[in-house]
Nucleic acid binder design. Structure first.
Length: 289
DNA sequence: ACTCAGGTATTAC
DNA sequence: GTAATACCTGAG
């Protein structure tokens, strides 16, 4: 397959660090020149900021232009979203200033499901390591610029992997969850392709919750970060609980803050953009500690 | 040795 | 329904 290029000259709300470090993805890595290289679907792409625009370059299965527009969510008006959210209050305005270049990627649903099951009670370096080993062992190899990259394995490619083999990748207690979820997806106990056709986010969430290893937080991450692209969700992890307590609730112990009260405040304040609001707040708080 | 990290599943009121 | 507890692993 030959290399393709796409130079995006006009853009806004686009910053590589903000996009790749805001916690939504695990397979993009920074290069020595400050560009990032990542694998998604069967594509290996390098993204580089230049003075004349953003250069996307790499191995792309289909035409690179629509592929990039779709994956980087380039048709959505983030400037409008940010201006709406900035009006909510000073906190939101501050967090948006910090993460002004965030875009929520349209990541493959299956990959997002597995990745966030792996993320449970885990840390980012280890999550990334597991995903790379999983891809190297069961995905397909793609060579680009003399280096080897691996596609994220499909459910079909994980069909015959045993619980023990999953554990050898360093998955820990998540081994059985990957095993069971792979089976459930393959036998269509949960028909994940059909989820895109369901309008009501709550119904989609209930479907995702049937999967092993998918609880409320992971389900909301999948809804927000995959091609399902629901913004009416508010994934609550330790950072979000912390920032919401500090800004709006002010309890002595953040562990005492209930999920319910966080969700109510989030919905009251941010409405149908609460998913985006969560991402700005999460990134802001986690980066500043 | 011990704690912690993008939670979930299981068990017991 | 809600609360308490165990859980792989590896880095600090």
């Amino acid at each position: 397959m030959k290399e393709q290029e796409f130079l995006l000259e006009k853009y806004n709300s686009f910053n590589l660090k903000d996009i790749f470090d805001c916690g939504q993805c695990f397979r993009w890595n920074i290069e020595d020149d400050g560009s990032y290289t990542g694998v998604f679907k069967r594509n290996v792409i390098n993204v580089k900021m230049q003075n004349n625009g953003i250069l996307f370059k790499g191995i792309c299965e289909d035409n690179i232009i629509p592929t990039i527009i779709d994956y980087f969510d380039l048709e959505r008006d983030y400037e409008l979203i940010k201006s709406k959210l900035s009006k909510v209050d000073g906190n939101m305005k501050e967090s948006i200033k910090y993460g002004q270049g965030i875009r929520i990627l349209n990541q493959d649903l299956w990959e997002t499901i597995i990745s966030f099951i792996i993320s449970a009670n885990n840390n980012i370096p280890r999550i990334k390591g597991i995903i790379e080993r999983l891809s190297k062992k069961y995905g397909d190899k793609i060579v680009y610029n003399g280096k080897e990259y691996y596609t994220f394995p499909t459910a079909e490619q994980l069909k015959d992997v045993s619980v023990e083999e999953f554990r050898e990748l360093g998955l820990g207690f998540r081994d059985i969850r990957l095993y069971e979820t792979t089976k459930m997806v393959l036998n269509k106990e949960v028909d994940i392709d059909n989820l895109h056709n369901i309008k009501d986010t709550n119904i989609v969430r209930d479907e995702l919750l049937k999967l092993s290893g998918v609880g409320p937080k992971v389900a909301d991450c999948i809804l927000l970060f995959s091609t399902l692209k629901r913004f009416d969700v508010f994934p609550i992890d330790v950072w979000v609980r912390r920032v919401m307590n500090d800004l709006y609730i002010h309890k002595e112990k953040e562990q005492d803050v209930s999920k319910k009260e966080i969700l109510k405040i989030a919905n009251d304040k941010f409405g149908d953009l609460e998913g985006l609001a969560q991402q700005y707040l999460f990134y802001w708080r986690r980066e500043l500690g």
